[in-house]
């Protein structure tokens, strides 16, 4: 599917011709240090097409998604594998992440409320920020459970040629 997308033919006048069909793909262990490595590699892959601020948003969203898989989908188990694909096109960076862990609980895809900061210190939230950040920074977030796999897809509207 990604390969097909990469070979879409465009005419000479089509502005899409100017966009390199940049694709990043990586498979790695569902383990925090492997996640760090994948984050570093994916951000480095698009560093020339996005601003430092956009790179920060990309890394943050990917970190939240990947950490959720490590901590919840595989529940900290050591032998899980995560697959991450990123395609750069006219609308930004389209990301797809898959894993073989437990299904994503319903509700994670509903736009979450930000945990309230207007409470006494002792009641301040220490979690619940991750899905909020994912929703806040992405578009077209979608999830599908298929053949024992979790498939999560979303788009970051960054690195779009017209806006730069």
């Amino acid at each position: 599917m990604l390969a097909e997308q990469a070979q879409v033919r465009t005419s000479e006048s089509d502005p899409r011709r100017k966009v390199g069909r940049d694709i990043f793909h990586s498979r790695f262990s569902a383990e925090p240090h492997a996640v760090r490595g994948a984050l570093r590699a994916s951000v480095a892959r698009f560093a020339r097409q996005i601003s430092p601020e956009e790179a920060g948003a990309l890394e943050l969203v990917l970190a939240e998604v990947l950490n959720n898989i490590v901590e919840h989908s595989y529940a900290g188990g050591s032998d899980g594998v995560i697959s991450l694909s990123i395609v750069r096109d006219l609308s930004g960076l389209s990301c797809a992440v898959s894993d073989d862990g437990i299904p994503l609980p319903e509700g994670c895809l509903a736009p979450p409320c930000l945990p309230s900061a207007a409470v006494a210190t002792a009641q301040l939230p220490e979690g619940g920020f991750g899905w909020y950040l994912i929703h806040d920074l992405t578009q077209d977030l979608g999830y599908r459970r298929d053949g024992g796999q979790n498939l999560l897809a979303f788009r970051l509207p960054i690195g779009v040629p017209e806006s730069r």
Binding site: G56, E59, L60, A63, E64, N67, T121, A122, L124, P125, E126, G127, F129, G130, L133
Partner: peptide, 16 residues
């Protein structure tokens, strides 16, 4: 130069 929600949660926890 990089903080994620786990790191943020840790700072909140320290303050609490």
């Amino acid at each position: 130069d990089f903080l994620d929600s786990s790191g943020l949660g840790a700072i909140v926890s320290v303050m609490k």
